[in-house]
């Protein structure tokens, strides 16, 4: 089994890539539909995934993702290429979703996002579904964390941003980011130990 103990994806965009992105964002800001569509298509999975973790699996996550994407398009003109488009969009996504989470008090009925296809997938897609369900379970576990801690955890564990990047994105200091990350991981660790669904999925029955 290959284990990625410290997960993270590297944006790895060169400045030339950023330049191209600045051009595209500038077109999007000027109202070019094809540029806007291209940006949405490129960022869609990333934004939806982030929104779901931040919303702790709540079904409103889809709404938040939509708001974040719209905010990204509205801010397109302010992208200067100082960081990758993905990082820049991530910052807007986190801020938009956090704002919505604070604004909207969830109602008593906590409806977790569900798939329509559960139990009805072909063999090929079964692994994907199983992984998605497990990750969703993790997102629900995020519900025990404060939104600020959730944001740091998502940016680090899901998107692999560095501590300094996260601090910049959240307008806070690195010490605070480290603290939130430590607290979040400790809590998550405790919950993971006692979660039969995730243990089963990883293939480790609790002894």
């Amino acid at each position: 089994m290959i284990l990625h103990m410290i997960p993270g994806e590297k944006a790895g965009l060169s400045s030339a890539d950023n330049k191209a992105d600045v051009g595209m964002m500038s077109l999007a800001a000027s109202g070019y539909k094809s540029a806007q569509r291209q940006i949405v298509d490129r960022l869609l999975n990333r934004v939806r995934s982030t929104a779901l973790y931040l919303a702790a699996g709540h079904q409103d996550a889809e709404d938040y993702a939509q708001m974040a994407i719209i905010e990204i398009l509205r801010s397109a003109g302010s992208y200067r290429g100082e960081s990758s488009l993905e990082s820049w969009a991530q910052k807007i996504t986190v801020r938009t979703v956090m704002r919505q989470i604070k604004k909207r008090r969830w109602r008593g009925q906590f409806m977790v996002v569900t798939d329509e296809f559960e139990g009805a997938v072909d063999a090929c897609a079964e692994t994907d579904l199983s992984r998605r369900r497990a990750l969703r379970q993790v997102a629900v576990l995020f519900g025990d964390l404060k939104p600020g801690v959730r944001a740091v955890m998502t940016m680090k564990l899901v998107h692999g941003h560095s501590i300094s990047e996260i601090a910049r994105m959240l307008d806070t200091n690195e010490h605070n980011v480290r603290y939130r990350l430590r607290v979040g991981r400790q809590k998550l660790r405790r919950r993971l130990k006692n979660d039969p669904v995730l243990r089963e999925w990883i293939g480790e029955e609790r002894q």
């Binding site: 999975n45 994907d128 998605r132 564990l157 899901v158």
Partner: peptide, 10 residues
């Protein structure tokens, strides 16, 4: 959990 280009838990 690492982002792999898919929508992850969504």
């Amino acid at each position: 959990m690492a982002f792999d280009g898919t929508s992850g838990p969504a």
